[in-house]
Amino acid sequence: MLDHYSKPRNVGSMPKTDTDVGTGLVGAPACGDVMKLQIRVDPTNNTISDVKFKTFGCGSAIASSSYMTELVRGMTLEEAARIRNTDIAKELCLPPVKLHCSMLAEDAIKSAISNYYTKNPSARKTDLGGTSAPLPKVEVETITEPKAATA
């Protein structure tokens, strides 16, 4: 797991104006870190087709976001929204003082998903496609709705 510290994956940016790109930008005031996480979503099945991040912070914050990008690639938005910071902290063996780094990564993916839904309000609706597959329940829906309404 040290690998994520020394060789972070998926560093970079995507054009945030693209409608299929959701951008999450979060920060930890305690240490002055900033983390940007972007997801590109395949609108046909609501899965994350590409993911990039840029983190300016300590090594643990970089490793947490790097690991998060590996984790969410290929996931549906609903699955990605269910990731908890403890999953990351456990995987990276973060010490207790660095738990906020994994919280930051969790906030970042939630914020990116929420941003995508804001841009694509129809993505949440259950009238997509004609498949018989059960349509997902979206956890973040309640959080994003007021934002979408005021936007």
């Binding site: 930890a28 005031p29 305690a30 906020h100 919280m103």
Partner: peptide, 12 residues
Amino acid sequence: VHVDESAKVEDP
């Protein structure tokens, strides 16, 4: 401010 680990920046 400097020790609150769970605090978030509410200032986009």
